[in-house]
Nucleic acid binder design. Structure first.
Length: 460
RNA sequence: GGCGCCAUAGCCAAGUGGUAAGGCAGCGGACUGCAAAUCCGCGAUUCCCCGGUCCGAAUCCGGGUGGCGCCUCCA
């Protein structure tokens, strides 16, 4: 399969470092508040990549960090710890906050059919390794101490900025970061911070009590679980200029060589044409989607309809379209179940087209189109059903679950009585009355369908 | 000021040199007492604009215009 490598800015054939096996690290959540649907888009992308790797016959070790020690709130060198801020406002310890939001996150991704990575290490459980890593960087001449921490000396690394192709000198002019006079260069970043006494999360270190900088956990945990060189590193595009650039600097400064073969980044989700972010506060969560009558899989479908490297503009209109499409697709797939075989040679062709699309830098929108063509253009066949489920191993849309008939679920006596009454009116050809009752039920959120097998209803 | 992405029907969205996938919405028909649901049929002579290369361009090159992102925590 081919993947777009941000480092080289082109699609490249994925050739595993170890034959038959892929090591992948994905930047995970900072667990101090609810993850929003923009975050979820990235994890859905990560999940599709997982599935494609498996389909190509590789075994996979997938690591996703849980950041349970705060990144700082304002900028690189100062500010309040996010976890601590959240903890204070909720009167809980940072550990309680982290545990709670980790649980919510895991439940959310499970509902989105995002498989849990093999390893989900926590930053706070790797403090000794981080300290050791920082010591190694200092020993290699890349770290220096100031009054408030240990910093990475970016000027020691000639190709610093290569991932984002940023020019250090050009960046300085427009930089909005406050000048820290003790730093040797404005782009130098903290590896370890010395903690003020009121900082709740702090650990002993050779430099006194403190806590890790923002980027060190990824360098440390990816190396610990995947080795000095691994295949794929993913994350959101926002991480390209700072987080991943610094991670590269750390890993290369420590190891003396690059640690990652493929850098793969997922684009952002926008809301109503603009940016969605925690700091702007215009965020939605999976919970809110559910409250509005959409299932997590409706959202997954929405994400699958756009390529991971393109921005996806989230609107409620788009959400409606995704819901309708998803329900119809599931029904269309299911309509093939149990039908006689057609022995179509065309099936092989669909199969090839589908997986070719997936293997071409995860072109899932195209693959989805191929699935639609298949379920709609051929006569009914159980073979199509079986093949659709094979496609679903990539898509993860639970297409094997039969669409609900509507008739299931609780119904109260009042509604039941109205339906009976309407049936009686219809029988008596009092259509004015029967239509009136139908409208009344509609206002109550009950939609009726008169089928050959009698009246059916569903909530709408 | 620097770096980068994008621009395809009402909306979402594939397509990266060979003559415009797919979905949603809409319209027409079937079905229905009428609807709903479902099924069948229909939509871009054209891909933001202007030039250029080529037998041939939505796709490549040059120049515009417009939108967005990053350079500050952020998926």
């Amino acid at each position: 399969m081919r993947l777009y490598n941000t480092m080289t800015r082109q699609k490249e054939e994925l050739v595993p470092i170890t034959e038959g096996h892929i090591g992948m690290y994905c930047c995970g959540p900072t667990v101090y508040q609810f993850a929003h649907i923009g975050n979820m888009r990235t994890y859905i992308f990560m999940d599709i990549l997982r599935r494609a790797i498996h389909h190509n016959g590789y075994t996979l070790t997938h690591v996703m960090n849980i950041t349970d020690v705060g990144h700082l709130v304002s900028d690189a060198d100062d500010g309040e710890d996010k976890l601590e801020k959240s903890a204070k406002s909720q009167n809980k310890t940072p550990w309680e906050i982290a545990e709670y939001y980790t649980g919510v996150f895991m439940r959310d991704i499970a509902e989105l059919n995002v498989a849990r990575p093999e390893l989900t290490p926590k930053a706070t459980e790797h403090i000794p390794e981080m300290i050791e890593f920082v010591r190694g960087l200092i020993a290699n001449g890349y770290g220096y101490e100031t009054s408030d921490g240990i910093y990475f000396d970016v000027q020691k690394l000639p190709d610093y900025g290569k991932l984002s192709r940023a020019n250090l000198e050009d960046q300085i002019a427009g930089a909005r970061v406050e000048v820290n006079l003790e730093k040797r260069h404005p782009a130098d970043f903290a590896l370890w911070k010395k903690a003020p006494p009121e900082h709740i999360m702090q650990w002993e270190s050779p430099w006194g009590m403190g806590f890790p900088g923002w980027h060190i956990e990824c360098s440390v945990m990816s190396r610990k679980y995947l080795g000095d060189k691994f295949d794929i590193h993913t994350g959101g595009v926002d991480h390209i200029p700072v987080h991943h650039e610094n991670e590269i600097a750390q890993s290369e400064g420590y190891l003396g060589h690059s640690a990652v073969n493929f850098w793969v980044h997922g684009e952002f989700m926008m809301v109503d044409g603009g940016k969605m972010s925690k700091s702007l506060g215009n965020v939605y969560t999976v919970e809110e989607l559910k409250a509005r009558g959409y299932s997590p899989l409706h959202f997954r479908y929405l994400c699958l309809n756009a390529h991971y490297r393109n921005k996806l503009n989230f609107t409620w209109e788009g959400m409606d379209a995704a819901k309708t499409s998803y329900e119809r697709l599931a029904a269309a797939v299911h309509a093939h179940k149990g039908a006689g075989d057609v022995g179509e040679a065309a099936l092989e062709d669909y199969k090839k087209q589908f997986f070719d699309a997936v293997d071409d830098d995860l072109n899932v929108p195209k693959a989805l189109g191929i699935l639609w063509n298949m379920v709609r253009s051929l006569e009914k066949s159980d073979e199509i059903y079986t093949l659709a489920l094979e496609f679903d191993k990539i898509l993860g849309l639970s297409l094997d679950i039969p669409p609900s008939d509507g008739d299931a679920g609780e119904i109260d006596a009042e509604v039941e009585a109205l339906i009976e009454k309407r049936q009686a009116a219809r029988k008596a050809k009092d259509f004015a009355e029967s239509d009136r009752i139908r409208d009344e039920l509609k206002a109550m959120g009950i939609l009726l369908e008169d089928t050959k097998d009698g009246v059916k209803w569903k909530r709408g």
